[in-house]
Amino acid sequence: MKNKFYQIYTVLLLSIFTLISCDESDDPEIIELEVQTAEDIPANPDGAPPSYTFFDLDEGIVLAKSDSNSNKWDLAFSKTTILTNSGISGPGNGGALIVDGIFEDLKTVPETGFNEDTEESLAIPTGSGSGWYTYTGPTGSPAHAILPVPGKVIIVKTGEGKYAKVEILSIYEGNPDTANAEFEDLATRATYGYYTFRYVVQTEENTSF
């Protein structure tokens, strides 16, 4: 009984200390940036000839095809291929870099390492295990699935040269749970080709996330 009391007491004390120290370290100048979620962005789900969906992270909207030659768009999706508004893909000042970590923990933009889309490779590489996803293959569990690799955060340089961080959550409609039997069974699996991702875009005032 006595022991339990001490335990609770210690936990309480520690919590208070933690709260105090948290308060102290918080930088009052930083304005919390809002985490946005883009849901079910179609990425050529019907498998027609290469057809991209152009997305503007600042506004959080899908753009018309006619905007593809502007620097308005930031990411373009078709199946597992994601273009950035850079190099061979677009006229913008975009680019991207994939870093390992937790979305929330990533606070600063790396100074170097950004890539542009080139003939040889895209800033966000395709291929199982090369970029942001893995293909589970015939023996995987679940089989024949495209799953985002956990712990991959894409730092995107937008068409206008701002920075955003993106975590892709799913490429299946409705962001389904991929560990259950419904997803396991190809007959009942959600439709492939719809992106759900969350992201944060830097504002003029804020260079950290």
């Binding site: 937790i102 979305f103 985002p148 956990p150 712990g151 975590e167 959550l169 991929t178 560990a179 759900t196």
Partner: peptide, 15 residues
Amino acid sequence: GEVFKRDPATNRTLK
């Protein structure tokens, strides 16, 4: 803290 998994409910990355 270099190994990650997904929360099945939200598909967000966890350590």
